[in-house]
């Protein structure tokens, strides 16, 4: 797959090329025949330093798997992930420690991502402890600084509480503090606001934006919500059944979507204004799973615009149609 040209000109922090992750699945109870679920299939993209890239898609599209591959919580079937020019797959031993300080992850569920038996202090200090950073006093200072940075002030009021004594929003702030306490340069944020209430959600979104400004962090922001992605991200990549179907600047994606799937996705988002009558999203059928998919376009079966030629053609590759707007569709 040809990578978009402008790779060298900008300072690229993450480069993902031809990344795939297949999971074996058992189809029938009695058959021994193994099938493969193509969770992530030949995905390539890059994130520039200081940038936020949104990875948007419906559940099961492979966006979370992509995030887990990048932080090495899972190993790719094939493909390459370069973070600051280091191949993630080849990191071993001492370098792993350095990698963990450079790349962090924020998880979706603030109720499950904090160990219930640890105090907030121990949770936030954990990355410092396991990497042997600083003396106890230095760690403590770091933790306190980080807690006030994420809006848990005064830190002393939170240090020795347990996760169950905090509200959902506060917990997610703790989770963010833990991810950022080692001052990573790249963070994978897996739907950090989707489990939170509206009034709390805005605070966390603003916090993420603020921390990006203050600490110069680059994010891969995984979400199912296009409106959130538009608010937080510079660029958006839309995933469908393990493939990126469209990638471009946030405003371009939201205002001028080109791929039929992106169009349908955008028109399905409810709007908080009863006066607006949204058109019916132009899409057929429902989501299936990419188990042993046919080599043609993944969206073919649901595509309202599909031509006969799409049925025969190979899966379309991402093409730059100008202005860094990439689309994978034969019809453009």
């Amino acid at each position: 797959m040809a990578l978009p040209a402008a790779t060298e000109s900008k300072d690229v922090i993450l480069e993902v090329s031809n990344l795939s992750k297949y999971y074996p699945v058992n189809q029938g109870f009695f058959t021994r025949q193994k099938s493969l679920l193509h969770a992530v299939d030949n995905v390539s993209f890059q994130v520039n330093r200081g940038e936020v890239l949104g990875l948007v898609g419906e559940s099961g599209c492979g966006k979370t798997t992509t995030g887990r591959l990048i932080v090495r919580l899972a190993t790719p079937t094939s493909g390459r992930i370069l973070i600051e020019d280091t191949d993630v797959a080849e990191i071993k031993g001492q370098d792993m420690m350095e990698f963990r300080q450079k790349v962090q992850m924020i998880f979706q569920d603030p109720y499950e991502s904090l160990d219930p038996r640890m105090t907030i202090f121990d949770i936030v200090a954990e990355p410092l402890n396991v990497n042997g950073i600083g003396t106890f006093e230095e760690r403590e200072a770091q933790v306190e600084e980080m807690l006030s940075l994420v809006g848990l002030a005064p830190p002393s009021a939170f240090l020795f509480r347990f996760p169950h004594e905090l509200s959902g929003g506060q917990r997610q702030r703790v989770a963010i503090a833990r991810a950022l306490v080692v001052r990573p340069s790249f963070v994978v944020a897996d739907e950090p606001t989707s489990m939170l209430d509206v009034s709390i959600r805005t605070g966390i979104m603003k916090l993420m934006a603020q921390l990006r400004e203050d600490l110069g962090i680059s994010y891969l922001y995984i979400t199912h919500d296009l409106a959130v992605a538009r608010y937080l991200c510079d660029r958006i990549a839309v995933m469908y059944l393990g493939k990126i179907v469209e990638l471009g600047n946030s405003e371009d994606i939201v205002k001028r979507p080109l791929h039929p799937y992106t169009k349908a996705l955008i028109s399905a988002v409810p709007v908080p204004d009863p006066a607006i009558d949204r058109p019916l999203p132009n899409i057929k059928g429902g989501v299936s799973k990419p188990i042993d998919p046919k080599p043609r376009c993944r969206f073919y079966d649901r595509c309202p615009e599909s031509a006969d030629s799409c049925a025969e053609a190979e899966n379309p590759e991402l093409r730059d149609i100008g202005g860094g707007h990439l689309v994978a569709c034969h019809l453009l």
Binding site: R201, T202, K206, A227, R230, Y231, E251, V269
Partner: peptide, 24 residues
């Protein structure tokens, strides 16, 4: 008012979000 403006929209121009301080 705050609830309606606390959430980003996919329509119109990108606008600033209203934060509701504190917790219920």
């Amino acid at each position: 008012y705050s609830l309606m403006n606390a959430y980003p929209s996919i329509l119109g121009e990108k606008h600033d979000l209203v934060t509701i301080p504190g917790e219920p």
